[in-house]
Structures are given as structure tokens and as C-alpha cells.
Design a protein around this nucleic acid. Structure first.
Lengths: 116, 116
DNA sequence: AGACTATATTCCGCAAGAGGTATTTAGTTT
DNA sequence: AAACTAAATACCTCTTGCGGAATATAGTCT
């Protein structure tokens, strides 16, 4: 994958938030919805964008689609995700997302999307 | 500056090349032209894009406009430039740019744009 | 002042992407 | 099978950005 394609994926706020959350572990669309508080279609489309470019992977679990970062990300992707995680720690919006994700943790476990 | 705005600047191949070269030190437009081998208008417009967003600074030296990275880049910018430099080392196109820049080094010194 | 040089800007057409509404798909439950 | 659910896709409109041709600007040199 070319470096510029990674940056194309990172240059939208919603996608940044999605990827940032994924650094914490796999998540399904419904959880992105609760954390980002954005409409389903918006989230789905950005996940599709990331998926077609190989930045995330999906597996279906019943009705739920569980998104993850690739098992073996390229060096470039890994470096940039680390950088994102580092920088996000300083921007309130990202920290808020993380906080919401933590509060959601129990629900994530119960959800049909969670591996048993 | 918001993180996403940095990525907006990084999501174009020409701008990536420009910024990558600037990590080596200040340069004027004519040098970008010789290294990138792209038309002047294209380079100027991308530099303007970066300038208006604060990723580069300019000073005029006679007829030449000398571009640099900011003296005190934000933490986010610094981190991403470091990451870019690291990743670029693996992509041939960027390495070629660096090679061309080195061959150009004498010309850079002689050029009217160089500080005396 | 006039010619020249390096660079910036304007204007154009075009393509990509973002967001929304409506609809579809795929799986589950009863 | 019918109803239901989570998520994806299609279609639309609007905006942004890219690239190129032509032109403008600002400084230098004679």
C-alpha cells in the first residue's frame, strides 16, 4: 500500500475517530454509533472506505459486523496508527471518544457481536 | 491546529514529496521544480496550500521564495513529519527525490535563494 | 523606464468525496 | 414464511480539490 493512500484514509475526521477507537480493539458498527453519535449510514460508509483500502478488516457475527485493524499491518500503517494514537491523546474530541468507549465496555461484552 | 488538518495536507502525493524534501532543510521553488519535475504552477499551488494551513513558512530572497518547515512545529506536526520521514525511506519515489536533491546540493548553494 | 526572472494567482473543467434519504441485503427470531 | 434487526448500498446534491493555460505580481538588472 502506498503511503499517500494511508493519508487519504486519515484525512477525514470521522475516519480518524473510527481508526482511533479500533486501536483499542475490535468493535461493531453499533458501538461506533453510540460512541461517535453519528448516523449509521455515515459510519458504515466510512468503514467501507477504510475496508476497500485495506485499513480495516471485517467479520460477520450474526447480525453484527465486527471491524478490526489488520492482524499484520504494514510498517507504514503501524507507524501512522501509533502516531495517531499519540496525537489523539491531546485532542479533547478523541479523548472523549475513548471515555465513552470505556463506559460502553460492559455493553460491548454483552452485545451479540462479542466473541463468546 | 487540528490533527485532521495535518492529514488533509498529507493526503496528496505532491505535497508529501514537498514536505519530505523540506525535512532536509529550506528550499526554493526552483529546486522543488528540478527535483519533482513537475510544472511550476502545480508546485506553487501546493506550497500555497501548505502555507495557508501553517505547515510551511516562506521568506522572500530576491526573486526567490524560500520555503521552510516552521521553526517550532506543533507536537502533532513534528510527530507526523518524523513518521513521514521514516516511512518515506521505504518508498522508491521518495528516495529518488532525496537522491536528486543531493545531486542538486551544489546548485542549491549557488542559487540566489541561498543565504550568503 | 524597460526587459527579464521567479513565483503567485485567476479562471476553467473535471473528478472525488462527504452527507442525507431511501432502499436493499443478510441474518435471526417466532 | 413473516417480522424483525444490523448493516450496506444506491442515488442524489453539494463542496472541495486537482491540474492546466493564461495572466499577474514583485523583484532584479541594464
Amino acid at each position: 500500500m502506498e503511503l499517500v493512500q494511508i493519508y487519504e484514509c486519515l484525512c477525514d475526521r470521522t475516519r480518524l475517530r473510527l481508526l482511533h477507537l479500533l486501536t483499542q480493539g475490535p468493535l461493531c458498527v453499533c458501538h461506533f454509533q453510540s460512541v461517535l453519535r453519528e448516523p449509521q449510514v455515515k459510519i458504515s460508509k466510512h468503514l467501507a472506505y477504510l475496508r476497500t483500502r485495506g485499513l480495516v478488516t471485517v467479520t460477520r457475527r450474526g447480525n453484527w459486523m465486527v471491524y478490526s485493524l489488520p492482524e499484520k499491518p504494514s510498517r507504514e500503517l503501524a507507524a501512522n496508527l501509533a502516531c495517531l494514537q499519540d496525537c489523539a491523546a491531546e485532542e479533547p474530541a478523541f479523548r472523549q471518544d475513548l471515555a465513552r468507549l470505556k463506559k460502553l465496555a460492559p455493553a460491548v461484552e454483552e452485545c451479540g457481536c462479542a466473541p463468546k
